[in-house]
Structure formats: C-alpha cells, structure tokens
Amino acid sequence: MKRTLFTLILLALMVSGCATTSAQEIAAPYFDTGIDSNTWVTIPAGEYPSGQMSHMVFVDTFDIMVTDVTVAQYAEFLNEALASGAIHVGDFEIHEGENIRQVHGVGGYYEGDPFDGYDHEEEVKAGDKIYVPFVDDGSLRLTFDGKTFTPDEAYANHPMTMVSWFGANAYCEYYGARLPKELEWEKAARGTERIGEYGLPYPWGEEIDGHYANYYASSDPYEKVFGKLGSTTPVGFYNGKTYNGFTTHDAASPYGLYDMAGNVWQWMGDDYPDQHYRHMRGGSYYSYEIDLRVWKFNSAGPDYYSPAVGFRCAQN
C-alpha cells in the first residue's frame, strides 16, 4: 500500500511537471510599449569601465538602435530584399562539424571569413547562407505565402528571433549599418559610471528583480501564460509602465537603450580569428540573472538560430 502511494505521488509530480502547455497552443497577449523601434541614439567617444573587472577602455563614437529589431521590421526587410533580389527562398546547407544539414528558408550570399586552419576552427566559406529557417513548430513569428512575409500580429513588436548571424548581419548591412562590436554594445549597455570599484553590472544599476528584465522565472505576464521559461516580451517593455497589473521599472541603460539585459541574446558583429564563433550579449528570457550581467557573453556558429536570439544594429 505504501509503495503504491509513493509511486502514485511520484507519478502525479511527474505529470504535473509535464503539464505546462507549449507556447504554440496559447495566444500571446499583445502589449503596446510606446517605444519606437526605429529610434537610434548616439554614444559619445570616450572610456568606459569594461568587462567584469571594469578596466577602462576607449570606444569611438557610434550610433545604435534603442531597441532590438522587431519581427515587423524584419518582415519588412525580407519583403524589400526579396523584391530587390538580394535574398532568395530555398534550401541552405548548415555545417555541424563534419555533418551537413539542409534547411528550407530564406537566405542570401555571405562573403566568408578568413580561415587559418586552427585547432577546432570551423571554416565559414563564401556562399549562400540561411537567414531565417521556415520551421513549423510555432517558433517562427512570421509567415511566408510564397510572395510576402507577414509578421504574426501578436508578436509584431517583439524582437525578431530565429534569425542567424548571417540574417542579422544582412539586415543591418541592407540599411547601411552593421552589427555592434562587443565593446560598443557593452558601453551602450552600462555607460561610464562607476560605483565603487566597478561599472554597472546591469543597464539600470546594481540590483535585479523581475520588474527590470525578462529572464528565467522573472514572473512577467508571458510566464503566467507560457510557464517559467516564458517567452519574449515586446521591445522596450521594461520602461516603467504597468501592463495588466504587472508593473515594470524603467530599465533603460544610461544612454536610453532598452532590453540590454534579458529578453533575447543579441548577435555581435565581431569575427574573432581562429574560431569564428559569433558572440551574443545580454542574456535571454530563459537565462538566469547571472547571464544578464553586461559583460557576460554567449557564442554559437553564425548559422545558429534560436527563439531566444535576436539583434540590433549600430553604425559609425
């Protein structure tokens, strides 16, 4: 009897763990944040406390987008680029070590990276690269009817995700911009202020809780719908507004940038010799808060795409 009871309790716990409904089965709520995703800001030249240990580093002046590129903006780019012949729909090869995987989606030409044949170095050759895969598991937030890309209305003002580094880079270059360098991004995220020995660990200051950013178990309205891992929030969501009773703090960086911690990892523009992993910054909606610290980075190959990776652009 005791054994049966124990087994039943264990099974009940396991079933309750599995019971969370997957994202595609529920409609996401729509929130207007009032933040214009077309806004850019100028970061002045000068030193800032860089990295975990806050060593002073000089960064030249540059402009950067106030928010991540949204699904609506990316759909617009795809339509324009498709019409101009800069990109095409088809099958693309993704190299995974010695394996090659075919993916159907939209992509375009990339000129390749210098290759030195270093240990563990994966060669990025010139050729057609995947920008966005056409996956049907619900993670892609735009649709393609054979002619036009249309953003999913519920996610139109969310960051564009499921976009490879090639896709992010192509977007920025198409509009005469580029992806930000890591040092630029970090300076834009934390500013120049030092508190004691260190620069700011988060764009808004030293403390973190669920009202500042979208991260794992941060209790935002999307976690209430989709579960603890949650989903992206609209760009600029953490701006001091209240949404359906959920209060946010104004979590802009010292230069007024939003979502520089949490929501989605952001692709960086640097290509490091002898490896070609592309770095990402900022942490995402299913990162722990430690990965939201402004100096932390993630990395993956340039054809990697994920529901938790997006980007924003910078320019000189």
């Binding site: 716990l13 969370t20 994202a23 598991d137 579960g227 603890k228």
Partner: peptide, 16 residues
Amino acid sequence: VSEYAQQPLVNTVMLL
C-alpha cells in the same frame, strides 16, 4: 528536444 519545445521536459527534470 528543441529550445522551443523544451519547457515540459525542463519542468519535469528540474522537479525531479
């Protein structure tokens, strides 16, 4: 499991 579909699995193993 893909990143998008991982939540049920993550919840279960975390609980265990």
